[in-house]
């Protein structure tokens, strides 16, 4: 069997007294779309943030393409360039236009020439459906548009993995769909994705795996259909009954 693109072994993360992650082990194959659900405080976001080392694990290891993120000799910036991340709060750079948001890292990290990076940016804006917003500042965009620019910004690095941290939680209801459509499209293109989201429509449409986390541990790890129709654990059943109406 080939090396999985993400391999997490016995991961622990403490914030002082709080144990956010308690012994997570997980493998994600290239091209897989994994959706992580769980009650708030279950450690979903922390797990995601450990995959690109925004959080430094207290114990255990994260391997991306076989490279240990914890190892001293690992160039974390180089690794992160291969791992796109989309945040709940978009985190667009407010002093730059949509186009500049997408070209900045291409310029300073990838060192692409101006023409190439602008072409990439315009193609991506086209792909997320807002080519006309290239020169708009984030403050002039709706939440859904901002999140789509943020997805384009991450994709511009040509990442091998995309991480989504509750990408639709800060959006007004009518804007959730436009973001989910971009994500479904991306999943179908064969991108490896790890998504923390409670959008069950997305999970059903695109996810290969659905992971239920609670209290810093993985409780269930199965297909979306299985988890909905046949949850094995009482905790899962309880949680699902709360979020599915």
């Amino acid at each position: 069997m080939s090396e999985p693109i993400i391999r997490i072994t016995d991961l622990y993360k403490y914030f002082g007294e709080v144990q956010a992650l308690r012994g997570i082990s997980l493998e994600v194959e290239s091209g897989q779309v994994v959706v992580v659900i769980g009650p708030s405080g279950s450690g979903k976001s922390t797990l995601l943030r450990c995959i690109n080392h925004l959080e430094k694990p207290t114990g255990g290891h994260v391997y991306v393409e076989g490279v240990d993120l914890e190892a001293k000799e690992t160039n974390i910036n180089k690794m992160r360039a291969e791992i796109g991340m989309v945040f709940q709060q978009f985190n667009l750079f407010p002093h730059l236009t949509a186009l500049e948001n997408i070209t900045l890292a291409q310029r300073v990290v990838r060192k692409r020439p101006k023409e190439e990076r602008e072409q990439v940016a315009r193609q991506l804006l086209e792909r997320v459906g807002i080519p006309e917003k290239a020169d708009a500042y984030p403050g002039q965009l709706s939440g859904g548009q901002q999140q789509r620019v943020a997805i384009a910004r991450a994709l511009a690095m040509n990442p091998k993995i995309m991480l989504f941290d509750e990408p639709t939680s800060a959006l007004d209801p009518e804007m959730i769909k436009e973001v989910l459509e971009v994500m479904i499209d991306l999943a179908k293109s064969g991108m490896t994705m790890v998504c923390v989201t409670h959008e069950m429509g997305f999970a059903r449409a695109a996810a290969h795996r659905l992971i239920f986390m609670d209290q810093g541990q993985i409780v269930e790890d199965t297909t979306p259909e299985d988890l909905y129709d046949n949850p094995q654990q009482e905790r899962t059943r309880l949680f699902l009954s709360k979020i599915l109406h």
Partner: peptide, 27 residues
């Protein structure tokens, strides 16, 4: 400047100095 700005810059592969120079300081 919100913490998310530094995180977004770092998640794109920028180093601390680059994030400071291009994202944090201009704001």
């Amino acid at each position: 400047i919100p913490k998310g700005q530094m995180e977004a810059a770092r998640s794109l592969g920028m180093g601390y100095g680059q994030a400071m120079q291009y994202v944090i300081l201009p704001q």
